[in-house]
């Protein structure tokens, strides 16, 4: 992979009490690619996302974003004794860095949620507009006295443009949670795009979608990647979607990586079939 690496996870371990949810996960996401993280239920995929976005502080390991260390941690306190993961001493000497989610968002990582989290009292338009708040040049005094009128107008114009681009403009005045499920997912992506990210994390974007919608979603993810100059990192259960759009796939089970590679190879990988594909076929 010769391109610039957008995100690099290095030996990331997340331990809750005695349970290791993510174990020694290392991966790289190159600029402009679509990378997928797959694995059976409870494999630790969402936990890995939460370690990147600052929801959790990993127990051990490092996350680099655009070549700079963003998250870095090592076991402290009680965890020193009860730590079950590997590479215990690798990051011991490095200072702990645990940014809050809003800080991560400012750096340029936006995400969607597995269970849709739209602001339920707001309209579609407002949901996207609020996401513009972070990058607006204003303070509370200019906002109250309306000295930020130009900035406000820019935010509103860009929000409308974004909604038009995503085909959501006709629903602009609807309450967000009144939209059909597929559109809510699309709105969540639009909201994430409004924060002007470099890396987009999608947590099961096709959950609850029928085959046609899933088909359309694949095309859509490619489109926004190209249009917004994004790198996409996604968690997904729909294998056909993953195989279709991913440039590279990481497979984890019980928190640990069991395979990685281009879709063709992962599909043939025995451990993957055993651990993951086999399970879904039995269901």
């Amino acid at each position: 992979m010769g391109e610039q690496t957008v995100l690099r996870m290095e030996n990331v371990t997340m331990q809750f009490g005695g349970v290791v949810a993510v174990n020694d996960l290392s991966l790289e996401i190159p600029q402009g690619k679509i990378v997928a993280l797959i694995g059976p239920n409870g494999a630790g995929k969402t936990t890995a996302f939460n370690c990147i976005t600052g929801v959790y502080q990993p127990t051990n390991g490092r996350v680099e974003f655009m070549g700079k260390t963003m998250v870095c941690s090592h076991p402290t306190g009680k965890m020193k004794k009860s730590y079950l993961g590997s590479d215990r001493d690798k990051f011991q000497r490095e200072p702990i860095m645990a940014p809050t989610p809003d800080h991560v968002a400012k750096l340029g990582i936006a995400r969607t949620f597995q269970n849709i989290r739209l602001w339920k009292s707001m309209t579609v338009f407002e949901n996207v507009l609020v996401a513009k708040h972070m990058r607006a040049k204003q303070n509370v005094f200019s906002a109250v006295t309306r000295l930020n009128a130009g900035e406000e107008e820019r935010m509103r114009r860009e929000t409308m443009e974004l909604l038009e681009e995503q085909g959501l403009d006709q629903y602009a005045d609807e309450i967000a949670t009144s939209l059909p499920y597929g559109l809510q997912r699309r709105l969540e992506i639009a909201r994430a795009l409004a924060t002007e990210p470099k890396l987009l994390l999608l947590d099961e974007p096709a959950a609850g979608m029928n085959p046609q919608e899933t088909q359309a979603l694949a095309e859509y993810i490619r489109q926004i990647r190209d249009k917004h100059d994004l790198t996409v990192f996604l968690i997904e259960h729909h294998m056909d979607l993953v195989m279709k759009i991913s440039d590279y796939i990481y497979v984890i089970d019980f928190g640990s990586e069991i395979a990685r590679g281009v879709p063709k190879n992962v599909q043939k990988n025995k451990r993957v079939i055993e651990a993951y594909l086999g399970v879904t076929e039995n269901e």
Partner: peptide, 23 residues
Amino acid sequence: SSYGRAFKAIRDDEVAAEAMGIS
């Protein structure tokens, strides 16, 4: 104002608000 909307976002869903860069 934009801040009022951010307040409402925190009221509706803190986790989403924080993920969208609202401190």
